[in-house]
Amino acid sequence: MKILETERLRLRPFELGDAEGLYAYAKNPNVGPHAGWKPHADVAESRQIIEDLFMVNQAWVIVQKETGRLVGSIALEPDKRRPEVASRELGYSLAEDCWGQGLMTEAAQEAIRFGFEELKLEIIAICTGPTNERSARVIEKCGFQYEGITRHCYKIYDGSVRDSRCYSLLKSEWEAQR
């Protein structure tokens, strides 16, 4: 995986040694449940998630350049809704103390650029929970178009099933925004 840089951030592949940094923000009950995953119980669980999920799906660690601190994750995962199209689904998480600073929008814009320019994608999708307004704002700032609600489609960590707000961004739309 290629290392990506923005003005304030460095996006690099996850390593098992990132478990403590991931746990530091992923244990927060205000972070994971918005995306449907439970707060991490300990560093060992964070390490397992890095190994089983982030390394397999080629997720990037989001690191603040100024401090060197791991503050989030972002990935372009396989898009299950469009298996026959050059498409990926964007997913991300960010430490709560970094919310409202434009960091996730900055990281997402770079991941989107990489997807369209280097992976030659035709479309990038993203879905979020119906009440995750912070994520919806990032999605809209990045130019995604609202597709609608997929009802009762996403089972979360506690066994309940949620709806998903779905968005997508065509390469041609992204190029027109630039």
Rank of each mutant, 00 (worst) to 15 (best):
E106D: 00
L90Q: 03
R88F: 05
Y146N: 00
K80A: 14
I123F: 01
G115S: 09
N132E: 10
R137P: 05
I139L: 00
C127G: 11
E89H: 09
I62Q: 01
L76H: 06
E110N: 12
G115P: 12
I139V: 09
V85E: 15
K65N: 03
G102F: 04
G91M: 07
A107Y: 15
S87T: 04
R82H: 15
T128C: 14
T128W: 12
Q145D: 01
A136I: 13
C98G: 02
V85M: 09
L70Y: 06
A86G: 05
G143Y: 11
F114E: 04
Y92D: 05
Q58M: 02
G115D: 14
I123R: 11
C98Q: 10
I124E: 14
Y92A: 00
Q109S: 09
V138G: 01
N132C: 04
I74L: 05
E106I: 00
G115C: 14
S87L: 01
Q58L: 01
L70V: 15
A75Q: 13
V138H: 13
C142E: 15
G102K: 01
E147R: 12
E106T: 01
A86S: 07
F114N: 06
S135A: 15
S73E: 14
R82L: 13
V85F: 07
A59F: 03
E110D: 08
G91I: 11
A125F: 11
Q145V: 08
E77F: 00
I124Y: 12
E140L: 10
K120N: 09
E84Y: 11
C142H: 12
L76Y: 05
C127Q: 09
P78L: 05
L76F: 04
V61M: 07
S93P: 08
E89F: 07
A136F: 08
Y146I: 03
V138I: 15
R134P: 01
K141I: 04
R81S: 13
R134F: 10
G91P: 03
W99I: 01
G102L: 01
L70W: 12
G100T: 02
C98Y: 12
I123N: 08
L121G: 07
F114K: 00
I62N: 05
T105C: 01
G91D: 02
A111M: 05
P83N: 14
C98D: 04
W60Q: 12
V63K: 02
G143I: 14
M104R: 06
T128G: 14
Q109K: 10
T67F: 00
I124D: 10
L90I: 03
R88C: 08
N132T: 13
A111R: 03
A95S: 14
E66D: 10
M104P: 09
L76V: 05
S135G: 12
Q109D: 02
Q64R: 13
E140M: 12
L76G: 06
P83K: 14
Q64H: 08
I126H: 03
G100H: 02
V61T: 15
L103K: 03
A107G: 10
P78R: 03
N132D: 13
I126T: 09
E77K: 12
P83R: 15
V63C: 10
I139P: 11
E96G: 02
V71E: 02
V71I: 14
Q109Y: 13
C127Y: 07
S73G: 11
E66S: 06
Q64L: 08
P130W: 08
I112D: 06
V85N: 07
Q101I: 07
N57K: 07
T131I: 02
S135H: 03
G100E: 07
V61I: 10
E66F: 00
L76M: 08
I126M: 03
E96P: 03
L76N: 04
